[in-house]
Design a protein around this nucleic acid. Sequence first.
RNA 1: GGCGCCAUCGUCAAGUGGUUAAGACACCGCCCUUUCACGGCGGGUUCAUGGGUUCGAAUCCCAUUGGCGUCACCA
Length: 487
Amino acid sequence: MADKKVRTRFAPSPTGFMHIGNLRTALYAYLFAKAEHGDFILRIEDTDRARYVEGAVDFIKRTLSAAGIVPDEGPDDIGGDCGPYVQSERMEIYKEYAVKLVELGHAYYCFCDPGETHTSGDFGGYDRHCRDLPQEEIDAHLKNGDPYVIRQKMPLDGETTYFDVLHGNITIPNSELEDQVLLKRDGMPTYNFANVIDDHLMGVTHIIRGAEFITSTPKHVLLYKGYGWELPTFIHLAPVMGKNEDGSVSKLSKRHGSTSFEDLVNEGYLPEAIVNYVALLGWSPKTTNQEIFSMAELIAAFSLEGLSKSPAVFDYDKLNWVSGEYYKAMGDEEFAGRARKFAGELPDYLEAHWAKLCSLLRTRISHLSEIPREIAFLKEQPAFDAALYTNKRNKVTPEKALELLPEMIELLEQVTEADWNNDALYARLNAYIEEKGLKKGLPMWILRIGVAGQSVTPGGATELLEILGRENSLARLKKSLANLQAL
RNA sequence: GGCGCCAUCGUCAAGUGGUUAAGACACCGCCCUUUCACGGCGGGUUCAUGGGUUCGAAUCCCAUUGGCGUCACCA
């Protein structure tokens, strides 16, 4: 038999932000669909009126778009043949199918008040009070317009088994299954019901979702069977974890830091880099050791076999590395443009040398929000300890600094404004170094510390001199010398 | 607690009965170098524990332990 066209879906509830775990689920569903030349559907599961967040649907669409995940079908302008793609707009459909399931004998009306206790001793769930109500009683309630819910009629014994691509056969005793509500008192379906109806009606062939649904899937399976529908293929993804202060791990959440796509973008991580990293969290390519992937490359490399069934810990170190790789591969001009708004207010001399500064920053930064810290010393010369003039390899000591700094200041004062650039300064200093028979690292170190005031800097001595400008540099050096002499 | 899922370096992971147990991040060392970074080279650390099965087990089975999930008119 010819394989049906693959259709996957991402079905978020509109809660206002895109958690990294959700982003990964969406990404895998998208990658699989595209790898199989199938369709990827976006469906909004907004059946919980209490949790609805205004504008959340647009937010989800914008986020997916920024991440490069493009739905083939979905709400509003996205369109498609299986709409509407927002569950709150499909209420008549759920009602119709719920009633149908009652007729099929796999569901029943329940008139119990939600406030009443209806649990039985050894069984934790609903006590099935209304499961076998006489038909006349049901009709009377209905005729009377009494509020009701529709519950699923679970098998009382036996077990339910289904196949999961990652986990193999999963079997749950039916005694664990509650007669769950399918249609709520307000007419809205529950997740467990709407999900099945929509996945079937929308022709979803592969359900890719989080592992938290493993134990509720038998309920879904019973629903499919109740209607006589073909089962989709299930793929339950292991969760994304975060590392706690004490070294333990738990499901990734706010307390682990920035854990939404939006947060990460705001911190200056490239969307492509985030997607790249997240793809590798719980999946690895089968035929390559490649680490850096474009979306097209991910699609080409993706297969279900590469999915991991154990939880993965979100690692900022590796994200930083991936992100750094993207910036290293980026052109100077594009980097300068993206980086500018992270730098804040800049004095004129830095504004003038922004391009140059960025070329130094680009290879030593993992995300853009590191920039203010990296360039703070350029805005204002930090106070520093003379001990910074100490470097073993270059034989640098504060005494040496005291000796050479005056000479170098004198030499630099002879350089004109017009010649004040990296190459000319370097040539000038080099001549001085050769004349004195010094090791290059010695005076350069002293100069760099003197002008920067900190041990680690983006760029070497002459590069910093150029960026700071003649006047500023000389002022800084003189100040550093004065401090040194005062000791 | 019942039920279920998971278990290879600190982290992401390859591995599907016979390997010196890949690779990447991080870490350490060396080289390069006007610092750091980049780049190059090298290094240490891993099969949770205990039983089986087998000539042989990270790979199969069982138990233990641990982690996680789930038990809503939330999704």
